[in-house]
Design a protein around this nucleic acid. Sequence first.
DNA 1: AAGGTTAATGTTTTT
DNA 2: CATTAACCTT
Length: 736
Amino acid sequence: MQTPVPPPADYLARLNPEQRAAVETIDGPLLVLAGAGTGKTRVLTTRFAHILLTRRAFPNQVLAVTFTNKAAREMRERVSAIIGQPAEGLWLGTFHALCARMLRRHAEHAGLSANFTILDTDDQLRLLKQVMEAERIDTKRWAPPGMMGVIQHWKDRGLTPARITLAEDSDYANGKARLLYTLYQERLRTLNAADFGDLLLHVTEILRTNPDILADYHRRFRYILVDEYQDTNLIQYLWLRLLAQGHRNICCVGDDDQSIYSWRGAEVENILRFEKDFEGARIIRLEANYRSTAPILAAASGLIAHNEGRLGKTLRPGRTDAQKGEKVSIVELWDSDEEARMVGGKIEELRREGHSLAEIAVLVRAGFQTRAFEERLITLAVPYRVVGGLRFYERAEIRDAIAYMRATVQPADDLAFERIVNVPRRGVGDAALRTMHEAARSQSIPLSVAAGRLVEAGGLKGKVKEAVGTLLRQMAQWRDLLGKDGHVVTVAAMLDESGYTEMWKQDKSPEAPGRLENLKELLRALADFETLAGFLDHVALVTENEEQPDDAKVSLMTLHGAKGLEFDTVFLPGWEEGVFPNQRAMDENGNKGLEEERRLAYVGLTRARRRAIVSHAANRRIYANWQPSIPSRFLEEIPAEHVQQANSSSMARDRRVAAATSFPTQFPLQARRPRVIEVWEQPGRPARTDSIPVGARVFHQKFGYGTVKAVDDDKLDVHFETAGDKRVLDRFVERA
DNA sequence: AAGGTTAATGTTTTT
DNA sequence: CATTAACCTT
């Protein structure tokens, strides 16, 4: 390469010394340990731009890898902004998108042709289920999703069926796991399809076994940049290591404290392995946090300090105004309803004070928890959005439309054909489908081809024969049309002529108009792509929801969904043992599971710029019934000097009452929780000591004194003196 | 082949 | 409780 030209310094001058070092340490392996809010993305994009501006490499000689399309888009935009022109011809994208691109170039090495289909999770599962049923596996005893998990885990670790040794074999499905995996992979090849895991697995396998291809990529990629490195799984690591062996200019940015995807195969150990595999690797820590106030940082730091085996980073406030911040609020509430009212009330208050709703988020452990807050915000007429619901391309009507496209351009795609052959209803039921499957299997031909032969040879009769014949003829016409009039016209014809659009027009359900609207949106999106193949790739790889974050709406989302985001005000409800930390995470993964939950809590707290309001309720509804709950251990782990307790008025009243009556409902906030949480380990309601008769005078913690009007098993209808008529559970009242 | 009924089962999720 | 998938009836 030519002598580096001194860069215009302005983009470097805006960095702090450690960030600048991370940008300017260009050659050789580099690991950047970047704490939350320390300018990780800025370093990565500036580094990218720096490589280009100092002419160390052309844009197409840099490989930049992210986990999400959003991160990839952001990086592309920010690099463009720094270099002052649209960044084109970049190898910048998600692991999967980059691998898909590579695999299309070398598909034949994996037994596929270049136009292979990328299957989504639904297709994967249907295919595996078919394989399992063909092998006469009892799918009641061995559920296909479980088997899928085994296969995915193997793929995550770079294990092709041939590489699975006895030691790695699973006893799943009575020792047939490896066989099922082999058969599943064979079916994928027959369908000319790859699942998500295959994209990485195939490419890595090709790089491993074809030195010439690998050498070609070594020549190409002078610099490699990796985002969210703590989230990489083994196969991703192997892929990176193979590609980085050429120039050894690999820079990985990550934060072990934000590793929250181990259940998806991510291995934090990849950070430790980095130093071993890349000898002489430099490590730079980014510890100045520019996002949050000092109390929030101290609270988060104190919490995460309870984890063992950290690489060790200490966040320090980088903002000049950081010291002025409020302490982290911890609010104790009577039950989950009151918690929702508290959050709703505080949001209203913030709104009145002029805070933008876009700067407020409610972060929960599990998706279903958003509902309580949704309901409350609807009542209060506060606009909100739930981030991360059903994605556009996952909607049934969109997947149907895509199946039409896939079946048309890819006659080998049995899954797509099977999906559409009776949608809209054509009278093709189980029996007809079985006939087609048998013909396909006995002659080793695709389902659609078998269907064609059955129509001609009379294997299908009457109405079914007519319907399938018509569909196949239409598909042939659409293929012609695609060559002549292009993909937008063709897809419009598909939806129209197949009767698919008509089906939804006839549908009287309230969702039907929305579905038609989505189909129109699909056609609009289609026009943005030059080819149908390009669009199908996009659909398979870009599943995220497009959203406008500048909307004046409160964001409701899971803690996982919030990673990488920040808000002025963050509500963190449901900090109760069993909910958060999640009981299942602890049961299944022990202390490792607990530590990941703690990292999740750390991620949650560090999303807040100015205000964090953590809350927990003493009673929570689990499915049908109310259960008392214990404050999360994480609450005690936040250093007390950075916390302000703020209890609701009803809680304060209950406290006084509880003290006076010795009714054991409250767990004092600072009390140590019992080691065994009985509520979760013994599901079902506690045994009643005595029944309460009609007419009895009772006392309730929340509603006060009243008289029992009726008894229904464990539910009482009570007329309370101050609260009126209520239906309550008997274990929540005492004889007065 | 379609619709209604019952039983099982409840994290986190990107690609 | 509430959702969904499998099952059974017509």
